[in-house]
Design a protein around this nucleic acid. Structure first.
Length: 369
DNA sequence: ATGTAC
């Protein structure tokens, strides 16, 4: 007979004017019912995921690998970069193919360290889904002194890299689920050892992606000023804090991604225990990929999605992905940020405006399906 | 979000 324990609490950090899909809230309550779960904090970019919600931080005495998912170590990094003539059309044509493997894989030279887990497949590649590499310009500076501490001023250019651990994290999750399904990790330390490698791998991958792009643009690139992982397990106060699409918000600076065609927000995060020390990671989908594809095809042309209202260029040789990732498939980033501010989870520091967003090489052959 | 299967 198991000991009775109080049911887990669920808190959604979104205002009444923010629409949150009921399926996603239902997923939060399913997670709350899991053995050992204590508190689920849902961020304003919450949306339904495969089995578990995306945009949530979940604190439990039991470690559940499926709550983090396969893209362990996924995160967003921001690198200062200097580009001489930042013309979007000209630069878009110079982006390298970030699906192609590193050639000849001088990865450890580029990042000055060994490759975590020894997994070299897919190293330096961006992946699909919501991943991207974006050349952006610092637009509005909303907290002058904080921006200055980060070395940022209006007009500066940055590379924003959103990517994760590719097939490495997928392999780690599969190793667990093949035996235990959605059940807990019986040996948390063993899972965490592999997980930690994937988290490091993701960060190395983001640096490699920045280096590849900077090299192709002939531009000097610096160390990341921000690099926060939004899919991971953290041991905190003797519990397992699972973050899935929820960035660490305890005194960290975080880039919260808008969409391919809207601004992103660099924020100073100061989330407390109610929010499981977390903030949002992006605008959050408001449409499923299937809906976005169907409705997008009726509403948009390829040309308007490739040249956005902000004047930026979207490099995306995969037409389906272009529609799935259309800005209209996402919530308004301004509302997500307003919810974080209203709940005192974050303070905006600066906005960035995209110049070139790279998703998939234009020369890429269409994906078979 | 992913590699792989259909």
């Amino acid at each position: 007979m198991s000991l009775p324990h109080p049911p887990a609490t669920v808190t959604v950090f979104a205002g009444a004017s923010s629409w949150i899909e009921s399926d996603a809230v239902a997923q939060c309550h399913q997670v709350a019912a899991l053995d050992g779960m204590r508190h689920v904090a849902a961020m304003p970019d919450l949306h339904p995921g495969k089995g578990a919600p995306i945009g949530a931080a979940m604190a439990s005495s039991v470690l559940y690998p499926f709550l983090v998912g396969s893209d362990i170590g996924c995160g967003i990094a921001v690198f200062p970069i200097r580009v001489k003539r930042p013309d979007p059309q000209r630069l878009a044509a110079r982006f390298p193919d970030l699906d192609a493997p590193l050639d000849p894989a001088p990865a450890s030279d580029l990042v000055g360290e060994d490759i975590p887990g020894g997994y070299v497949e897919s190293l330096g590649t961006v992946g699909r889904g919501n991943h991207f590499v974006e050349l952006a310009r610092v637009d509005a500076v909303l907290d002058e002194s904080h921006a200055e501490r980060l070395g940022l001023a209006a007009g500066d250019l940055v590379l924003v890299v959103h990517s994760g651990s590719r097939g490495f994290g997928e392999r780690i999750l599969r190793g667990h689920t093949e035996v235990h399904g959605a059940g807990p990790a019986p040996d948390a330390a063993a899972y965490l050892a592999r997980h930690d490698d994937a988290v490091r791998w993701g960060s190395v991958n983001r640096r490699l992606l920045a280096a590849r792009v900077a090299d192709a643009l002939g531009a000097p690139v610096g160390e990341p000023i921000v690099d926060q992982c939004h899919n991971l397990v953290e041991i905190r106060d003797g519990e397992f804090l699972h973050r899935k699409g929820a960035a660490p918000g305890d005194g960290r600076d975080v880039l919260i991604a808008g969409t391919r065609g809207t601004h992103s927000y660099l924020v100073a995060a100061h989330a407390g225990p109610d929010a499981n020390f977390s903030v949002a990671h992006g605008a959050g989908r408001k449409m499923s990929r299937a809906d976005a594809l169907r409705r997008g095809k009726a509403k948009h042309t390829v040309e308007e999605l490739r040249r956005t209202p902000l004047g930026s260029v979207v490099v995306c040789g995969d037409r389906q992905l272009l529609f799935e990732e259309a800005p209209t498939a996402y919530k308004r980033i301004e509302q997500v940020i307003a919810d974080l501010v209203d709940h005192e989870l974050a303070t905006p520091v600066a906005t960035t405006a995209p110049l070139v967003t790279y998703k998939v090489a234009d020369s890429a052959p269409p994906r078979r399906r």
